[in-house]
Design a protein around this nucleic acid. Structure first.
Length: 380
DNA sequence: TTCCCGGAGA
DNA sequence: TCTCCAGGAA
C-alpha cells in the first residue's frame, strides 16, 4: 500500500512525505555523524509528549530532494469516520502541520509515505521547511554520479552489448499499436532469465507463426507454443503463462494489454522488473525505474543506493528501485536500464568485474575489491 | 530461500 | 564437470 502511494505521489504536485521510523540509537548515530544540532535542540520549548512512546522519524521531501532527521514532538492516534486509525505526529518548527500515518496495518512498518493532513500548499510547506531546517544536509545525489554515468556512456558507445540490439523495445516495432504492445508484453515475459538473442529468436518464431496476438495464443496449442519458444529459460512455465496472459488480455482488455502497473503485476510471470519495462516501452508511461540484476548490482557497487536510513546495501531490486528513485532525475529513469545492463554484461560483470579496463574505477568505491578477470578483454 | 531451464564459460 | 546466470513464484 505504501509503495503504491509513493509511486502515485512522488512526482505529483500534491504534498507527499516519506517517513520512516528509526531507532533512537540509530538516530543518535546519524546526528553525531552529521555533527549537527537537531531541530528540537534549537527549539526546546516544544509541547511534545516526549518520553519513549514518541517515535523518531526521518522525514524527507521528495520534490526538494531534502532530507532531514528530526524528532517527533507529539503523537496522537485518531480514528477517522471511515474507521481507519491514523497516527498524527507533529514535527518541531512546523507547528502548523501534522502528518498522518495509517496504523491500521502495523505490520507494514519500515518505510511509509504519508500525506499531509494540514491545509498548507506545497510552496508554503517548502518555506516552512526551509525556515525550520537548514538546507546544509539535503538528500544529495551521490557525488560524481553524473561523471560516472557519462563515463559509462562513453564505455558503452565504444562497444556492443547484447542488450543494444535485442531488447524488447524492438519487438513488433512494425506492428500497429495494439499488436505492438502485446508483442512487447510477450517479449518481456519470455526475456526474463533468458539471453536476449535467444529471446529474440523465440519472439521471431512466434511472429512467423502468427502467434504474436492474444487471440492466436489463446487458441493455440500449449505444446506448439512451448516448441516455438524453446530454448528460452523455463519454457514450459512460460508457455503456460503465455496462454494464461493471452486469455486475460482477451477477456479483460479486448486483446490489448493492461495499461497500469498494478494490473500488469497481476499477470502470471510478470513481476516488478517486467511490469516497469512494459509500462516504459509499451505505454511510454514511466512509472518507475526498471531495475534488473545489473542495475541492482552496479547501483550497490557505486553506493548509489542503500537500505532506508542506513548505509547498508539494498537487498532486492525493488529496494534498489525505491532508493534510486529518491535522487535520480526522472529523465534518467529509462536510459539507466539499458546503460547499466550493457555495462554489467561487458565490464561490471557479476563475477570478476573488469575494473582494470573500467574508466570510472577511480570513482567507484568497490573498484578492485572483488577478484578481477584474468582476461582484460570484455566478452561479447 | 529455493526452484525452475539450458547454455556459457571456468 | 561444475558453477553461474536471470526474474518470478512459492
Amino acid at each position: 500500500m505504501s509503495v503504491s502511494l509513493l509511486r502515485n505521489t512522488a512526482f505529483l504536485p500534491s504534498i507527499s512525505l516519506g517517513i520512516q521510523t528509526i531507532s533512537s540509537a540509530k538516530m543518535r548515530r546519524t546526528r553525531s555523524s552529521l555533527n549537527q544540532e537537531t531541530p528540537s535542540q534549537k527549539n526546546p520549548g516544544c509541547d511534545g509528549t516526549g518520553g519513549s512512546s514518541v517515535p523518531e522519524l526521518r522525514v524527507f521531501i521528495r520534490r526538494k530532494r531534502v532530507k532531514k532527521t528530526v524528532e517527533v514532538i507529539a503523537k496522537e492516534v485518531k480514528e477517522e469516520s471511515s474507521g481507519k486509525k491514523v497516527m498524527l505526529v507533529r514535527l518541531p518548527d512546523i507547528e502548523d502541520f501534522s502528518y498522518s500515518k495509517d496504523i491500521t496495518h502495523p505490520q507494514s512498518t519500515p518505510s511509509k509515505t504519508v500525506r499531509l493532513t494540514g491545509e498548507k500548499t506545497l510552496p508554503q510547506l517548502m518555506q516552512t521547511e526551509i525556515k525550520g531546517f537548514s538546507l546544509s544536509d539535503p538528500l544529495q545525489p551521490p557525488s560524481n554520479w553524473e561523471k560516472v554515468l557519462e563515463g559509462i556512456r562513453k564505455m558503452r558507445s565504444a562497444e556492443d552489448a547484447p542488450v543494444d540490439s535485442m531488447g524488447c523495445e524492438k519487438a513488433g516495432s512494425s506492428l500497429p499499436a495494439k499488436e505492438r504492445r502485446f508483442a512487447v508484453l510477450v517479449s518481456s515475459l519470455l526475456s526474463s532469465q533468458t539471453k536476449d538473442q535467444v529471446n529474440h529468436g523465440a519472439v521471431q518464431r512466434l511472429l512467423q507463426n502468427g502467434l504474436l496476438a492474444a487471440d492466436a495464443i489463446d487458441s493455440a496449442n500449449e505444446e506448439t507454443i512451448k516448441s516455438l519458444i524453446y530454448p528460452v529459460g523455463f519454457y514450459t512455465r512460460k508457455a503456460s503463462n503465455l496462454k494464461k496472459v493471452a486469455k486475460i488480455c482477451l477477456s479483460k482488455y479486448n486483446g490489448d494489454i493492461p495499461s497500469s502497473l498494478e494490473e500488469l503485476l497481476l499477470l502470471p510471470g510478470i513481476g516488478p522488473k517486467m511490469a516497469h519495462l512494459v509500462m516504459n516501452v509499451a505505454w511510454e508511461n514511466v512509472q518507475g525505474i526498471c531495475v534488473d540484476t545489473h542495475v541492482h548490482r552496479i547501483s550497490n557497487r557505486l553506493e548509489w543506493v542503500s537500505r532506508p536510513g542506513t548505509k547498508q546495501k539494498t537487498r532486492t531490486p525493488e529496494e534498489t528501485r525505491e532508493s534510486l528513485q529518491l535522487w535520480l532525475p526522472k529523465e534518467e529513469w529509462v536510459p539507466i536500464n539499458p546503460l547499466l545492463v550493457g555495462f554489467g554484461q561487458t565490464i561490471c560483470t557479476p563475477l570478476r568485474p573488469r575494473c582494470a579496463i573500467c574508466t570510472v574505477s577511480d570513482l567507484c568505491p568497490s573498484a578492485f575489491k572483488e577478484a578481477a578477470s584474468p582476461s582484460s578483454t570484455p566478452k561479447k
